[in-house]
Computed example of a mutant assay.
Amino acid sequence: MSHPECMYCTDDGRLDKLMIEIGPLSVSTLYLFKEQTYRGRVLVALNTHEREMFHLSDEVRNQLMNDVARAARAVDKAFKPGKINYGAYGDTMPHVHFHIVPKYEGGEQWGTTFVMNPAQVYLSDEEYAEVIAQIKAALE
């Protein structure tokens, strides 16, 4: 079934404006969020279109959560944040996905909820490539 409203399911350029694909995981795809106020911020999106976690089979849900943990572990290893925040929203983009947001003591929104798109820090192509290389090297 086609989901033209979903940027994860439709190759229409919306996703490319916000993220850079890092690569496939077991049942999801790992992306680098282009806005890097939170250095190392990534997103894990399920490869199939599902609106809710409870729509997933136990097997797929468990694999997805393993993907989320694997991505978070890589971000932690690569960037050493003070804490990693997780966001699973979907009001405006109803496709199962998780924001993995490293937070740094003394940094942006430490001690509060992260801002979805603070639009403060964008990198050069070379800097994005370096961040992606660090994450890929840290993926276990």
Rank of each mutant, 00 (worst) to 15 (best):
I20E: 07
S26A: 14
A133W: 11
M65K: 08
L15V: 01
E108C: 11
T29L: 05
V44R: 06
Q134R: 15
H99K: 02
A129F: 10
A71D: 05
N85L: 08
L32E: 03
V44M: 01
G111Q: 14
K34H: 02
M116A: 08
L25Y: 06
V121D: 03
F79G: 10
N62M: 11
V68H: 05
A129R: 15
M116Q: 11
V44K: 00
E59H: 11
T37R: 15
C6A: 07
I132N: 04
Y128D: 05
Y104K: 01
Q63T: 03
G90A: 03
V27I: 05
C9V: 09
G87S: 06
L64D: 02
K103S: 04
V115Y: 04
V27S: 06
K34I: 06
H99Q: 12
V42G: 10
K34Q: 05
V75E: 02
L15C: 03
A88F: 07
C9T: 10
E127H: 03
K77Y: 10
A69G: 13
V68E: 05
T48A: 07
H49L: 06
I135N: 00
G87E: 02
H49D: 01
D91L: 14
E108G: 10
E50H: 11
I135A: 03
V27M: 02
E105P: 06
M53G: 05
F54N: 12
E59D: 14
R70T: 15
L32K: 02
G13E: 09
V115F: 09
L139M: 06
T29F: 06
P81T: 06
N66F: 08
R14K: 15
G90T: 02
T10P: 00
R61Y: 04
F33M: 11
A71R: 05
E52Y: 05
T10I: 04
C9L: 10
H97I: 01
E108Y: 13
H99S: 01
S28W: 09
G13W: 01
A71G: 11
